[in-house]
């Protein structure tokens, strides 16, 4: 029925150890054709994960390191005068890639940030009046340092909203870290797996199309609306969820169901993706990922999927 994604997941698991749930979320995000924001301290495996994602789906990968002096042109590309032919020629920037890792996006100035986010939204880039389409599929993985670190420009709410999910990898558990250390020291009994492509870009696009065919029944839609309305009717939540957020929730739940080889959505699917999809929209820009409990968890606690 569906393409089996378990080899891809197995490969990713072997690359980023002990983070099954986060890996599933990242793949879900990719399947749902959304962009992913990873918020974490440096050195937690953000880059490894994005690299592995690109590899496993056979996608062209590029990485942009955001700094405070990075200009939009550095990322999008520039028109350069070709003296031989006597006309301007467009030189593509690193954004013209199927998987773009925008590293430390909150270190760049707002101008550059919004250039990238515009590209994400439109799937195209406009420079000097001419429009250049971005490759397809186009998947941005942005990483962001916690905003309390020095030299950061936090993303505004409107731009956070462009990311389908925000996840945080967090520290691996002791067992996983030990395994990782052993492998990197070369004492592992079996060699590190070579980079292997499991799926092609065409297959990925086919899967992305299947996502919208996943059945969402009425009770599920009601549950979703109850979740969203909880955020709107309850004064505990400073930023209620928008209709765009409801759309994102549905699409992510569909992708999650597909990842679990079901052709319909269960309440459990919504619950699984809810924090990743909703938390950054609920919390706004000013606060960090980890604070006194998750707002999205609170909404889940307040809403029964089986209520009539």
């Amino acid at each position: 029925m569906h393409t089996d994604l378990s080899p891809a997941l197995a490969y990713l698991d072997s690359q980023v150890l002990g983070k099954q749930h986060q890996i599933k979320l990242a793949v879900t995000c990719l399947l749902a054709d959304g962009h992913l924001l990873i918020e974490d301290l440096p050195g937690m495996g953000k880059t490894t994960l994005s690299h592995a994602l690109a590899t496993v789906f056979g996608l062209h990968f590029s990485r942009i390191q955001f700094t405070s002096d990075l200009l939009p042109a550095d990322m999008l590309g520039v028109n350069i005068y070709n003296t031989r032919q006597g006309e301007f020629e467009f030189h593509q920037g690193p954004v013209f890639s199927q998987v773009v890792l925008a590293d430390e996006i909150n270190r760049a100035s707002p101008k550059t940030q919004s250039a990238l986010l515009e590209a994400m939204e439109e799937n195209q880039v406009s420079i000097d009046g001419s429009t250049h389409s971005l490759p397809s599929p186009f998947f941005v993985i942005a990483t962001q340092n916690p905003s309390y670190q020095a030299g950061t420009y936090p993303l505004p709410e409107s731009q956070l909203d462009r990311f389908l999910m925000r996840i945080s990898l967090g520290y691996p558990d002791g067992e996983a870290e030990k395994r990782m250390l052993r492998e990197s020291a070369g004492v592992s009994s079996h060699h590190q797996k070579p980079a292997s492509q499991v799926l092609s870009a065409e297959q990925l696009q086919a899967i992305q199309k299947q996502v919208s065919d996943i059945h969402v029944s009425d009770p599920i839609l009601d549950y979703l609306l109850r979740l969203v309305n909880q955020s709107r009717d309850n004064s505990e939540f400073p930023y209620p969820l928008s209709p765009r957020a409801s759309k994102a929730l549905m699409r992510a739940a569909q992708a999650w169901a597909l990842l679990h080889q079901r052709d319909f959505v269960l309440p459990e699917d919504l619950q699984a993706i809810f924090t990743a999809v909703a938390e950054h929209r609920l919390r706004g820009s000013q606060t960090d990922y980890r604070e006194d409990g998750l707002l999205s968890q609170r909404i889940l606690d307040l809403t029964d999927p089986l209520a009539a």
């Binding site: 059945h215 029944s217 009425d218 009770p219 599920i220 052709d263 319909f264 959505v265 269960l266 309440p267």
Partner: peptide, 13 residues
């Protein structure tokens, strides 16, 4: 229940 309520051919009501 899942088949009735959530699956593609289920009829919740």
């Amino acid at each position: 229940f899942i088949a009735l309520n959530y699956a593609r051919d289920g009829e919740a009501s």
